[in-house]
Nucleic acid binder design. Structure first.
Lengths: 108, 108
DNA sequence: TGATCTACTTAGTGTAACTATATAGTGGTA
DNA sequence: TACCACTATATAGTTACACTAAGTAGATCA
C-alpha cells in the first residue's frame, strides 16, 4: 500500500515499543506481531530485537527469561522507572512535533 | 524546553521543507527562519542546506539564483511536478503514521 | 525426515539530521 | 580603518536509528 516508512519511523518505533511494554510484560516476537497488527506491517523481528537490546543497554527495561510451551524460551520485558519517564518524554515530544506538523499542514 | 527532537524529525523535516517551498519560491535562510518560527527552534541553516542539496539532486525542486539588496545572492527554490508528487506522498505517510500513533496512544 | 511456526541474535548497511567550520556580501559604528 | 552583526551559502565528518540478511534453536506435525 504505502511506500517505505523507514525514515518516518526513526525515533518513533522505539516509543511504540516502550508503550507496548508499558501495558504489561511482553517479549520481542509478540511485540513484533502487535506492531504488525497496529498497521506497521513491514516491521520484522530483527528490528524489534535491536530496539530491545538498546532499551536494556540504556537501562529502561528489566528482563526475565521464561520457558514457553510452544517454542524456545522467551525474554519478557517490563518498563522500570527510567523507562516510564522515557515513555512520558516520548509522548511529550510526539505531541509537540505532531501539533507543529498539523499546524504547518493546515495553514494553507 | 523539550529535549532533543533529532530522531523524531528524521523523515519529517524534509517534508516540512517541501511544504514550505510549495507555498511559493523561497531560499534556505528564509526556510530556516520559518521552521524556527513554527517551533523547530533548534534547526540551523546547515541542516536545511543539506536537505535542499538532496532535494535538488533528487530532482524535486528547480533553483534560480537571484541577487539580494541586503546580503549575498540567494538561491530560490520551487517545487516541480515530481516535488509536488513527493509532497503528496509525504502527507499520506504522515497521516498514516500519525493515525496509528494516536490509535496506540489512546487504546489504554 | 522435513516443514512450519515460534523465538532470539547480531554484523553490516543506508539514510537523514546534526556539528562544526568556512566563505562572503551589506550596513553600522567606534 | 577595523570590527561587528546580520544575511546567505557550502560541506566534510559524526551520530543514531531502522533495516537487511543470515544464523541458531525449541516445538509440533505430516
Amino acid at each position: 500500500m504505502l511506500e517505505n516508512l523507514t525514515e518516518m519511523l526513526k525515533g518513533v518505533l522505539e516509543g511504540c515499543v516502550l508503550e507496548i511494554i508499558s501495558r504489561g510484560e511482553t517479549y520481542g516476537y509478540e511485540i513484533t506481531r502487535r506492531l504488525n497488527t497496529l498497521g506497521f506491517t513491514d516491521v520484522v523481528e530483527g528490528t524489534v530485537y535491536t530496539i530491545l537490546v538498546r532499551l536494556e543497554k540504556n537501562g529502561l527495561v528489566d528482563m526475565e527469561k521464561k520457558p514457553s510451551d510452544i517454542g524456545p524460551p522467551r525474554k519478557f520485558f517490563v518498563l522500570n522507572a527510567a523507562g516510564h519517564e522515557q515513555l512520558r518524554k516520548f509522548w511529550e515530544k510526539w505531541a509537540f512535533v505532531s501539533s507543529k506538523m498539523n499546524e504547518l499542514k493546515e495553514k494553507k
